[in-house]
Amino acid sequence: MDIIKKILHLDRRIIFLTLFIVLLITPFIHLEMKINITNPTRRIFNDVEEMSEGDPIIVSMSYAPFAKPELYPMTLAFLRHCCMKKLRIIFVATNEAGMSIAIQAMEEIKMEFEYEHGKDYVLLAFNPVLSAVMLGMGESITDIFPEDYYGNKTKGLKVLKDVNDYRDIKLLMDFSAGDSPVWWVVYANTRYNQRIGTGVTAVMAADFYPYLNTGQMIGLINGLKGAAEYETLINHTAEATEKMTSQAIAHIVIILFILIGNIAYFIDKRNKRKERHGTA
């Protein structure tokens, strides 16, 4: 009886500790698991796959380092795919730390694909007023970003040749830990018909599904699982796929806690009913 009450009012620190231990151990465990590809991820992949060499795309970095464990693997997988397709990548940041994450990502893959800053990709400077950036790029990208991250004049950069505004951009991919994809839809899609794709944290993903159905977003990479799906699609198993084991076991642990809580709840309910009948 007492145990049931204890389970029902379980000290949350026990849950924290159990989860902590599980997450501490699972990186050393590897389970072979088939990654099932969801449609929103496949749509992003297909869109990039259909592009031609030299097509310009915008990659918006809208997350701070806190979301890096979840969003960096998908950023890397997506950029790797872009490099495979030899696309021109234009980085913008709606978060002040976004550009440094973009630098890190490009440092990781640029040697492999022989990508050069200014020629194959460009990091544009960070501008804190998002709406000005999002709208301004619809008029002229080089006007709203006269200089790149390193202070070079953007006019005349090879990577921006023939790229004037959204009309020249094949896809705008926003990696975000907040609601920036919605603002890209509001400013860039609604106003300038820019095609938008997004990669978001799992906790925010459900917010963006309505935009998928309306076609305002072409696809969505959802959390670490989405990143693992993208890695599977480009045949390059990396961090996200490896972390799937930890995520899987953590989910199972939470499910077990919920089940235990419910079992205790029903036992408690039955006991109370018995007590009532007993006293009656």
Binding site: F16, A64, A67, K68, P69, V253, G261, N262, Y265, F266
Partner: peptide, 24 residues
């Protein structure tokens, strides 16, 4: 430090889920 704060969410979700998801 920021990643730690964000990671806390997993723990809080677990404890909130344990409390909230009851078939009442």
């Amino acid at each position: 430090l920021q990643a730690t704060m964000f990671a806390l969410l997993a723990f809080f979700i677990a404890s909130a889920a344990f409390r909230a998801f009851r078939a009442r």
